[in-house]
């Protein structure tokens, strides 16, 4: 009896020490989202821009969600689940995201522009998804995927405002877009143990007004509900992203 007990104890100890899996070697990729207009970083409040329709405007808020990132190596996807980032032009530290990746070469990346439907219906959240970030609709549950606010003399509404709060996560009203970006053939992402690589993504805000859907401030200064208009504007937003540079 005694020996049996000792044996079980010993086995448990052995199993415990052997159960530790080998940690794969990992490095870091830092992805910068450079929100730009005419090759210059977007300046909130103080710069006047002109859209392709000749409408002048200033931007006061520019925020959007990135989630469900994927890194492809020879077509094989590596997904990062349950991570959500709010890119906010007003907060420098939010303009880049860091992800740990196993050592490997990656030839393309993908991400969801917005918050997936499952997380939209999972109750109160924290961090980037905290309702305090002013990106959650209180009157109609769901996240605002992209938000751009500002003013323009062409806007006929109060205080010459424009406000695009783009959301909708279910069925026909889904404003979610998944974005795949191929990395330059000669400049793949090469993750090495303990090192940091960077990807710079240009987000060309100038294209926001006319990338498939013609959005003029004079005609459409506001969108704040899910639906066809929100989908069209979300479609425009999804076409702003391109890889500018990869550094290993």
């Amino acid at each position: 009896m005694k020996t049996a007990g000792c044996l079980i104890l010993l086995l448990c100890l052995l199993a415990n020490t052997q159960a530790q899996p080998k940690k794969p070697a990992t490095g870091i990729v830092k992805i910068f989202f450079n929100n730009r207009i005419n090759n210059h970083p977007v300046v909130l409040n103080d710069s006047t821009y002109t859209n392709p329709f000749g409408e002048s405007y200033i931007i006061k808020k520019l925020k959007y969600y990135i989630s469900n990132t994927v890194f492809y190596s020879g077509g094989k996807p590596l997904r990062q689940k349950n991570r959500y980032w709010l890119v906010n032009q007003a907060i420098d530290s939010s303009l880049s995201i860091r992800i740990n990746l196993p050592e490997n070469n990656y030839d393309s990346i993908g991400f969801l522009l917005g918050v997936d439907s499952a997380r939209n219906t999972s109750g109160a959240q924290t961090g980037a998804l905290d309702p305090l970030n002013d990106m959650f609709w209180t009157w109609h549950s769901g996240y605002i995927m992209e938000k751009m606010e500002g003013s323009s003399p062409q806007s006929k509404i109060v205080n010459n405002k424009f406000e695009y709060h783009i959301g909708g996560y279910e069925g026909e009203n889904s404003a979610l877009n998944f974005i795949n970006l191929r990395l330059p053939a000669d400049k793949k992402l090469s993750i090495q143990k303990g090192k940091m690589s960077t990807i710079i993504i240009t987000v060309d805000i100038n294209k926001f007004w006319d990338s498939g859907y013609r959005l003029t401030i004079s005609e459409t200064p506001v969108c704040s509900t899910p639906g066809i208009l929100a989908k069209q504007i979300a479609g425009n937003f999804s076409k702003l992203f391109s890889v500018e540079e990869v550094t290993n």
Binding site: N120, G123, F136, S141
Partner: peptide, 11 residues
């Protein structure tokens, strides 16, 4: 309009 009991009080 509200899809989860936890987020209801926000309204």
């Amino acid at each position: 309009a509200i899809n989860h009991i936890e987020v209801q009080p926000l309204a």
